Simulated assay, not measured.
Amino acid sequence: MSQRYEIRPAEDGDSAALLRLIDQTPQEGEVHLNFERAPNFFHATKVTTTDPDVWVMIDHKTETLLASFSIGKREVYVDGEKRLTRYGNDLRIHQDYRGGRTLLRLFKKYRELMQDEWMQTVILDENKASINSVGSGRLSLPTYHQAGQFRTYMVDLYKKQHKATTLLVRRASNADKAQMQSFFDKHAPSKQFYPVYDFSKIGTKDNYYRGVDIENYFLAYDDDELIGMCAVWNQKDFKQTRFVSYQGKMKALRHINNIKSKFFGGLQLPSPGSLASYLSLHTVLCADNRIDIFQDLLSCILKTYHASDYEALIFGFDTRDPLHEVAKNLKA
């Protein structure tokens, strides 16, 4: 008699079932969010990791895809050196199967696959379910070590927030790729766990750079010297954030916030079920990690996308990184 439960590598044909699983497992908190992957689950996976490694759990009695996890790899800088490192994400368990036995089965397979390797992962502060289960260290689950706290900002693009710049900031072109790569190779290693990028692959069919064009990059110069860069990335074609519902006091605070923002400016909190419309900021690098360089880059981007088709610009840093202080004077 075959086993009821099977844990196996995900296949291309699993995409529709994985999308259904995502719909059934929003991230909990005062605002329930869902990080969706339409139209194909694996498009976003291949942006997150260069070497995807997604696993699914199947209940053969009901033919249900009941859980998933991803431990794919991509190169990041660790202590200044490139290292192919696993990134743990997309741990999802259908609500009908949540409990210690399902989690134990998943992590038994995880231990078989990982052996002595370690991985990175991110857990939202308000995701108490994951903190109290996966991150608890109980039930022979993996041991988690806090490496930092990442703070994310959502900056209002409808409100005029850009300032005059002192540096020359312009968009990049294909002719800039070699200079950008040299600048990146010099400064990125100083950022712990910073993803490694190959600028020659931007604008190609390489899945890791899906949706990125070289013109999405903004470059800051001091005379002819490149001293800063960052880029905007519209990922909505393969990765979406849905505001599923509001809980507790946030039900009332959402209406108060939206009335206030109409008169004084600020982000409107979308109605339940709505998708967020935003751009993501990435590859932020400044010589000597200078705040003034990032301020000029950000001002240029805010000016470019002010009153555009997008509601917000999203970016974030480790709280120990001084660059996150630039957001303090923004409506965010």
Score class of each variant (00 low, 15 high):
266 G>T: 07
315 F>N: 14
215 E>A: 14
285 L>M: 08
284 V>G: 12
258 N>E: 08
241 T>D: 00
276 A>T: 13
273 G>S: 01
219 L>G: 12
190 S>H: 10
293 I>W: 03
259 I>G: 05
213 D>L: 13
254 R>Q: 10
199 F>P: 15
239 K>S: 13
315 F>H: 12
234 N>Q: 05
192 Q>M: 02
270 P>E: 09
220 A>L: 07
200 S>N: 12
268 Q>V: 03
245 S>E: 11
216 N>W: 03
295 Q>T: 14
196 V>E: 03
258 N>T: 04
217 Y>N: 10
307 A>S: 11
183 F>G: 02
269 L>C: 07
299 S>I: 00
250 M>S: 09
293 I>M: 04
284 V>D: 09
253 L>C: 04
256 I>K: 06
244 V>P: 00
301 I>L: 14
219 L>K: 07
309 D>I: 13
231 A>V: 07
262 K>W: 13
255 H>V: 12
289 N>H: 04
294 F>P: 00
291 I>W: 01
250 M>L: 11
310 Y>R: 06
306 H>W: 08
200 S>Y: 02
299 S>W: 00
283 T>V: 10
272 P>L: 00
213 D>K: 14
305 Y>W: 14
186 K>G: 08
297 L>F: 09
309 D>A: 15
212 V>D: 01
211 G>H: 01
309 D>T: 15
253 L>E: 06
229 M>A: 11
225 E>D: 08
315 F>I: 03
314 I>G: 01
288 D>H: 12
231 A>S: 15
312 A>W: 01
304 T>S: 08
275 L>F: 15
309 D>W: 02
297 L>W: 08
243 F>V: 11
216 N>Y: 15
197 Y>I: 05
275 L>K: 15
285 L>C: 01
280 S>N: 11
286 C>N: 04
309 D>M: 10
224 D>K: 12
303 K>S: 12
248 G>E: 11
308 S>P: 00
220 A>G: 03
249 K>M: 08
307 A>M: 09
191 K>I: 15
265 G>A: 04
247 Q>G: 01
298 L>Q: 12
237 D>R: 09
251 K>W: 07
184 F>D: 12
186 K>I: 07
188 A>Q: 10
288 D>A: 03
183 F>C: 03
265 G>T: 07
251 K>L: 12
306 H>Y: 06
233 W>F: 03
202 I>L: 13
244 V>F: 00
229 M>R: 13
263 F>K: 03
229 M>L: 15
184 F>A: 10
252 A>I: 02
314 I>T: 12
245 S>M: 02
